[in-house]
């Protein structure tokens, strides 16, 4: 099949209804789906992007937010190259639950996983409950990157995923360099990225 330099796994998490599925659809299919049901379990899409002329495949796992799917969605954290934690800027509740999700990340994901805090639905200007700077502060405290998006108006959605692809590619290049120098025998799962480059061609 087609050739690509790296394959990265990106996993979206966060409360139900904050717009994870819409973000993924917007990015992968360029549309804002009308009234689709809540995600059941885990959904999966692939989209190729180019980073500095190299073809990168993003394997995007969209998880269900409900409690009853938690043990299933948690199983995807470990092998994730990047995590996107989404809240709804119009929902204090969804923001209040962020610490809980961060705990989950700390517990199940790799310590060095690249993670993004995303405040979605910024198109609803009059209904906003979480100001930008609050979200930003929060992200800083937990060493996450931060961006605000609107899946509906296609704002910052591509920027989010391209930034992730760029950062992961950069990391992978560094890793490849270290491997060549023969210092790749570290304790913790350091070569997930490079070993992924050969996987999953179907």
């Amino acid at each position: 099949m087609d050739d690509y330099k790296y394959l990265f796994k990106v996993v979206l998490i966060g409360e139900a209804g904050v717009g994870k599925t819409c973000l993924v659809r917007r990015f992968t299919q360029g549309l804002f789906p009308p009234g689709q049901g809540a995600t059941i379990g885990v959904d999966f899409m692939i989209k190729s992007v180019e980073v500095n002329g190299e073809k990168i495949k993003l394997q995007i796992w969209d998880t269900a937010g409900q409690e009853r799917f938690r043990s299933i969605t948690q199983s995807y954290y470990h092998s994730a190259n990047a995590l996107i934690l989404v809240y709804d800027v119009c929902s204090q509740l969804s923001f209040d639950n962020i610490p809980h999700w961060i705990q989950e990340i700390e517990k199940y994901a790799n310590t060095k996983v690249f993670s993004y805090l995303v405040g979605n639905k910024i198109d609803q200007i009059n209904r906003r409950e979480i100001p930008s700077h609050i979200g930003e502060q929060f992200a800083k405290r937990y060493e996450m990157k931060f961006i605000e998006t609107s899946a509906k108006e296609a704002e910052n959605v591509d920027a989010l995923f391209y930034d992730i692809a760029t950062e992961l590619t950069k990391q992978a290049h560094q890793q490849a360099l270290e491997t060549d120098k023969g210092v790749n025998f570290k304790a913790h799962n350091t070569s997930t990225i490079s070993s992924c480059s050969t996987c999953l061609r179907f």
Binding site: F69, S71, S75, H78, S79
Partner: peptide, 13 residues
């Protein structure tokens, strides 16, 4: 399907 995927992931971990 989701259950199997989850266990495969857990097994890898």
């Amino acid at each position: 399907v989701d259950g199997i995927c989850a266990m495969l992931n857990h097994a890898s971990t």
